[in-house]
Design a protein around this nucleic acid. Structure first.
Lengths: 337, 337
DNA sequence: ATGAAAGCGCTAACAA
DNA sequence: TTGTTAGCGCTTTCAT
């Protein structure tokens, strides 16, 4: 069953293709009667505009590329949802690529998206500097780019959507202190991610303020999986470093840690309280539920999408950094019953 | 920075566009010397083929639509990964749409994908019959479709990728019996999903075989979220129906149930053992880890992708139903230490 | 109000 | 071996 084109309609109605096009586009230069006939015929023959032809005509692909480190946790999914809220009604399609936390794959993805003629890129990067030159190149090619969550270093002038990492990290740690914790460990992610440093700074600031800091309490991981969280807390225990609570960079790391604690029959929160950053259901499907800084992921996606669209429609629109509000949510993992 | 086209190269080298095209395509009818010059110029000017033009030319979009009920659990993400393994190297882009378990949204998504000229659709449906007419229509339009996981009723002759639901459900239940359980509850999903019935049949078969069935033990949910699982077990407890184990349709339902049990301080697996179907990390990030039927999700995605590609390349290739092998994995949620 | 024709970037007959 | 031309489906000047 071949697709019906304007040409088919033109033959069918013995009208020129331009007239058909005008009728379809609601042009003023069209007789109402003619338009009615065209519309009816279009309906009857099942005419569907060919978006490829339009894209060629207008020099756009109506594709937006999304680059994320992974899609295994619901983090990226929720952001995607927000992105689609904005982009779907505008007729954009979203092409998703996963970097697997590997900057080389990320680079390949970016190149691929450029090949694919995407009109813009929304990216959550996996290394704050490794691909800086690639980002710069794409931007020079006038490809609109918006970064969210994990953003590149200051030297790149781009639009970003982030959260108030440091402040909220401080608040979390302060909450642990307020609930009587004194030996607060921190499970960091890799240093190649800007938020990792930000959140760690928030943590350090408070521990120093209360004069309870101890470098032994900071465990640096070289990855972001459940397994990394697990190994971090294992390390603390093996080194016999006493601790009564954990602030983890992400819910993934936190949950990994929780699991190991469970296996060791260490009670949460009685013996060890635990808190982290999240924004997904992950925080509520574990037991006990995790105290977290709730990031407005869907809203972040929407905001990022709005920024790309803005940039696509107006190449001169200025770069913006939008800091989203987060909410600290207290749950059972830090509250004794 | 405007994109460099073949025309630009043609001017730059004083050659016809067709010669340029030939050089780029490695045509035999081209002087090696000329080809070298073209390739060098292309490299120097940064030429990138315009995929939109190609798609128009060849009447393809090189887009494949993916329709899934949700992306919040890692289920769809893992399948997507498999799909991309196959499709990325072939130059296909994957457009993702989420139905939110709502057949009306699913229908809208399908219509949208058709508008978008996708070359094929891979779908995990959310109601086994509601949109049957839409599927049929798309198939009549010669749009290649492959169903996976949740498939439509028998009356539709389409390619499918599924697992051996009934058999494996039986094995799970038999495992529960072998570990001494006698009052085995079943948390079903909605009856509008074929696998739900399949797995329930497997469950019933075994309970009848051992003559321990009891209709009270079957809880029918009207959704698939954590919350539904939670409420199902709540219902069992409220009705004071005694049970010593649960077989849940999915890990999502199982985890929801686990959480409620935890809150009621009911010990898993000592007081209640629990098992389900999965294939994602969800089963291992909860405590205790869940005994599940591990579905090869990535492989399922790959298989589905291969089937669409096959169908795209040859409209006449026959419909196939591929049953993937699953593995029953015993974990702490059914094994007392 | 309608039609003819050009053009978006590319490929593939057909000529030369 | 290279060039000319038409055409994929659509919109948009420019004529009529």
């Amino acid at each position: 069953m071949k697709r019906v084109t304007i040409k088919d309609l033109s033959k069918f109605l013995s009208l020129s293709t331009s007239t058909i096009s005008r009728a379809l586009l609601n042009d003023k230069n069209i007789h109402p009667e003619t338009q009615k006939r065209v519309l009816q015929a279009a309906e009857r023959l099942g005419y569907k505009p060919n978006s490829t032809a339009l894209n060629l005509k207008y020099g756009k692909s109506k594709n937006i590329g999304l680059v994320v480190p992974e899609m295994i946790t619901p983090f990226s999914s929720k952001v995607l949802r927000g992105i689609q809220n904005i982009l779907d009604p505008l007729g954009y399609r979203v092409i998703i690529t996963q970097s697997d936390e590997n900057p080389l794959i990320e680079r390949k993805n970016l190149k691929l998206l450029e090949e694919f003629n995407v009109d813009g890129i929304i990216i959550n990067l996996c290394h704050e500097s490794f691909n800086e030159e690639v980002y710069r190149e794409l931007i020079n090619h006038e490809l609109p780019m918006v970064f969210f969550d994990r953003i590149p270093g200051k030297s790149l002038n781009v639009s970003k959507v982030i959260v108030d990492d440091q402040i909220k990290a401080s608040l979390v740690v302060e909450h642990l202190i307020n609930t009587g914790r004194k030996r607060i460990a921190h499970i960091m992610g890799p240093l190649t991610i800007r938020n990792v440093t930000e959140r760690a700074n928030g943590y350090k600031r408070i521990l120093e303020k209360y004069d309870i800091s101890d470098p032994d309490l900071i465990i640096q991981t070289d990855g972001m999986t459940f397994e990394h969280g697990r190994r971090a807390v294992q390390e603390l225990l093996n080194k016999k470093i006493p601790f009564d609570s954990i602030f983890a960079f992400s819910d993934t790391l936190a949950i990994g840690a929780m699991n190991y604690l469970h296996e060791q029959h260490i009670k949460i929160p009685q013996e060890v309280a635990i808190a982290s950053f999240s924004g997904t259901e992950l925080a509520t499907i574990v037991h006990p539920q995790l105290t977290t800084v709730q990031q407005p992921l869907e809203k972040m996606g929407e905001t990022a999408a709005q920024l790309v669209v803005e940039k696509i429609n107006n190449k001169l629109s200025p770069e913006q950094t939008i800091v989203m509000d987060t909410e600290l949510i207290y749950r059972a993992s830090t509250l004794s019953e």
